[in-house]
Design a protein around this nucleic acid. Structure first.
Lengths: 254, 254
DNA sequence: TGAATAGTGTCTATCAGACACTATAGG
DNA sequence: CCTATAGTGTCTGATAGACACTATTCA
């Protein structure tokens, strides 16, 4: 419905006005329960948003991100912008989609590359504001989904959430939200925080004593071969586990 | 190592010289065995390549693709270029990665968006050459991987192959290579053609009589409820099946 | 001893994996 | 009756899902 009348010479093409990246930074915050002394914390999935200081969408909340430079890949751009805007670095960063609908950015023709990052709460404690942002804040995802975000960031956030839910069930990205050593309850809580519908009554047993899943996680032992335990969240000490570097291959056919 | 000395004003940024798409078109070709009269065909996974007529990489084989216009999404661009360059339309098209390494395209700063397409052999029978391509051809993937393709298309092809192998095992994309109604042998052959390591000795039984997998495929029956059979590939007629619109959710945790 | 979490015993129906076996129809 | 593919019988050990039960430690 447009410029088929123009001559077909490649040098006459209009070129994009920029190749931005947007990063959906997820973290799981832990809050101790009020009453009990030793109990599992309340966990919540939150996303990092920045309040814009400039046109366009001045005053609206947006995902961190920025423009790719000629000398870097879009991944390097995402890493750099994440560091510049939120002070977060060295984290798990996954590319998941491109957003190219005409008119999605009032500044011009912008094709944006979206990443999600999974970071531990401690990593974002030292976050800071930058030139471009009036405020950086962690917002519970359910709340963020209801907000009227800048650009098409509502769609991007929603897509990112779908992706990490799928990855949470099919890969070992849960490790990104956990310390090196963790208990089964912690793992179970993390999975449930990201995927609320997840429920396994015999979770511990399935992970530890099922041959086909043996290998994704292993018990942590000390030099003498004694199992290492933690009583951080419970009276009775719980076995500590760690992820191995093995990820099982899934199949719908068997 | 670069332009940190320049002033930090957004209007001074260099902008990309284009946002191309590249499409990895996979098809499975079937060849009848010479000797036998009724037997399963030999199937091969092939990829569509175009011989370039222009600088850069003139004379080299490349993936079909082209430049995104201001008025379309990258997906629409991929659909359009696929139609223009190969005559293929209305097929399964999945976005899988972005390629943005500086210097990947001698024409300038090009951030390319890669799709894979799954098409039936019949769809590509009517393929044609275009202005830009001297030749369009299906090449067996193993052969194509050995070739010195234009740009970083070797990497893109390799990545695409990884992706469809993973999708073949975890989604029902096998349907894109099959007719509406198919036999278990055909399905098994298609899976094996894409993922040679796949092997299930009790394949039929697992698909049809396992509760947890019941639902991805169903028997085809006629109006009277009689099972529909095919003896296209065998003396003994085989039950015909079709995919349902159900895709199971996989999990490494149970 | 109660609270809070960790973990086991045990039962049944189902499933995986292996292998031998029967079934169908054309030539 | 041979061949090529389709499909079943049957065995063992492993697993899923349910629920009741025991274990550990601190306050």
């Amino acid at each position: 419905m447009n410029d088929h009348s123009t001559t077909y010479t490649s040098t006459e093409y209009r070129t994009p006005d920029g190749a931005p990246t947007d990063i959906v930074v997820f973290t799981i915050t832990s809050t101790e329960k009020a009453g009990a002394k030793k109990s599992l914390p309340i966990r919540a999935l939150e996303v990092m948003l920045i309040k814009r200081k400039q046109w366009p969408f001045e005053g609206k909340w947006a995902l961190p991100g920025g423009f790719t430079k000629e000398t870097e890949t879009v991944r390097q751009c995402a890493e750099r912008e994440l560091m510049e805007e939120t002070g977060v670095s060295g984290v798990h960063l996954d590319y998941f989609n491109v957003y190219s609908a005409p008119g999605r950015d009032p500044r011009g023709w912008m094709i944006s590359h979206a990443f999600f990052a999974l970071v531990q709460e401690a990593y974002v404690a030292s976050r800071r504001t930058s030139d471009e942002a009036a405020d950086v804040r962690l917002i519970p995802v359910e709340e963020a989904l209801e907000m009227d975000l800048a650009f098409d960031h509502g769609t991007i956030l929603s897509d990112a959430l779908d992706k990490i839910r799928q990855h949470m069930m099919t890969t070992t990205i849960a490790r990104e939200f956990l310390p090196e050593r963790f208990t089964m309850s912690e793992l179970y809580q993390v999975i449930q925080t990201v995927v609320p519908s997840f429920q396994e009554r015999n979770f511990i047993r399935k992970i530890t004593s099922t041959q086909s899943r043996r290998g994704i996680i292993e018990e942590v032992r000390n030099a003498e071969g004694q199992p290492l335990m933690s009583n951080q969240y419970s009276q009775r000490p719980a076995q500590l586990y760690r992820f191995t570097d093995y990820t099982p291959e899934l199949s719908i056919y068997g």
